[in-house]
C-alpha cells in the first residue's frame, strides 16, 4: 500500500506545476460566505462517522483490540503527552524528518543547478538520476540496513533519498523552462552570466522548486513511517510498533493522527512560504 501511495506521490511530483496548482482567485465576500456554509456542510458526514464509530465501540460492537474508540484515543493522547512519551518520540521523529529533508534540499538543489545550468552537467547528472528515480525507494530499506546498520543514519538517509527526487526534478524542469525570450532580453540588456542566473533563472525557477519542496515534505513523512518501523528504539513509528505488541490500537491511532497532523502542518508551511516568496504573482498578491 505504501508503495502505491509513494508511486502516486512521485507521479504528481513529476507532473506538478506551480502555475496550475496555485491558480486560484481570491473568493469574493459573498462567495466566501457560501464557501463557509459549504465547508460546514462538509463537516457533517465526518462527524456522523465519528459518532457511529464511538457508538459501535461503546456498545461493544467493536472491541478495543480491533479499533479503539475516538474518546479512548483522545484520552490516550493526553496521557502520552503528560508522561512525556509522545513528546520524546515526536522530537526524535522531527529531527529525522528535518535532517533528512534538509539534506535532500541541499543535494537536490545542488544537482539541479549543475544539471540545469550547464550542458555537461546535464549529461553527467540528469541521466543517472532519471534512471535511479525509477527504483522504488522503499525497496532499498534492506540495503540501507545492511550498509548503514540500524542507527539514525539509514532512517535519515532514507528520508533524504526519497525527498531529493521531487526537488531535483522540479527545479531542473523550472530552470530549463525559463522563457527563452527573457534570456534574450537579459542578453540584450548586457547582463553577465552570473547576473542572468541570479536575477532571471533562479527567481524564474523558484515556483517549481517550491512545488518540488511540497512533494518532498510529504514524501519525507512517508519515508519516516517505514524507516521508523524497522529496528527503531524511538520515534512515532517505534511507538506504534511497540503498541502493536500490546494490542494497544489507541496508541497506534494516536501515532497515525500525529503523522497526519504533521503532514498537514508542513504542507501548510510550504504554502505559506509560497505566498511569501511569490508575491509577484498577481493571485498570490491579492490573497496575501
Amino acid at each position: 500500500m505504501l508503495d502505491a501511495v509513494l508511486a502516486q506521490g512521485s507521479r504528481i511530483g513529476l507532473g506538478g506545476n506551480a502555475r496550475t496548482t496555485t491558480g486560484q482567485v481570491a473568493p469574493r465576500p459573498r462567495r466566501a460566505l457560501h464557501l463557509h456554509l459549504g465547508s460546514m456542510r462538509r463537516l457533517v458526514s465526518p462527524l456522523l462517522l465519528l459518532a457511529v464509530w464511538q457508538a459501535a465501540s461503546s456498545t461493544g460492537l467493536v472491541s478495543a483490540q480491533t479499533l479503539a474508540s475516538p474518546l479512548q484515543i483522545m484520552l490516550t493522547a493526553r496521557d502520552l503527552l503528560n508522561d512525556g512519551t509522545l513528546t520524546h518520540n515526536l522530537a526524535v521523529s522531527l529531527v529525522r524528518a528535518g535532517v533528512g529533508l534538509g539534506l535532500a534540499i541541499v543535494i537536490g538543489v545542488s544537482l539541479a543547478l549543475v544539471a540545469g545550468l550547464s550542458r555537461i552537467g546535464e549529461d553527467l547528472v540528469d541521466a543517472p538520476i532519471q534512471m535511479l528515480r525509477t527504483i522504488p525507494v522503499l525497496a532499498l530499506v534492506p540495503m540501507f540496513i545492511l550498509w548503514f546498520g540500524i542507527g539514525e543514519m539509514p532512517k535519515i538517509l532514507l528520508v533524504t533519498l526519497g525527498a531529493t527526487f521531487p526537488i531535483y526534478l522540479n527545479l531542473y524542469k523550472g530552470i530549463r523552462a525559463i522563457d527563452p525570450k527573457l534570456l534574450e532580453a537579459a542578453r540584450t540588456l548586457g547582463l553577465t552570466h552570473g547576473e542572468t542566473v541570479r536575477h532571471v533563472i533562479l527567481p524564474g525557477a523558484l515556483p517549481d522548486l517550491l512545488v518540488g519542496l511540497r512533494f518532498s515534505v510529504g514524501i519525507s513523512w512517508l519515508m519516516l513511517v517505514v524507516a521508523e518501523q524497522v529496528n527503531a528504539n524511538a520515534g512515532i513509528g517505534h511507538m506504534m510498533m511497540d503498541a502493536e505488541d500490546f494490542l494497544r490500537t489507541d496508541i497506534i491511532l494516536v501515532g497515525m493522527l500525529v503523522y497526519a497532523l504533521f503532514g498537514l502542518a508542513s504542507d501548510q508551511g510550504v504554502r505559506l512560504l509560497e505566498r511569501r516568496l511569490l508575491v509577484w504573482r498577481p493571485q498570490a498578491h491579492r490573497r496575501g
Partner: peptide, 23 residues
Amino acid sequence: STVVYQEPRLFPWKRVWHNVALG
C-alpha cells in the same frame, strides 16, 4: 546598443524600478 521587443519582456519577479535598474 539595446533592444525593445514587441512584448515588454519584463522580469515578473522584479519590481518595476528593479527591472529598469537591473544590470
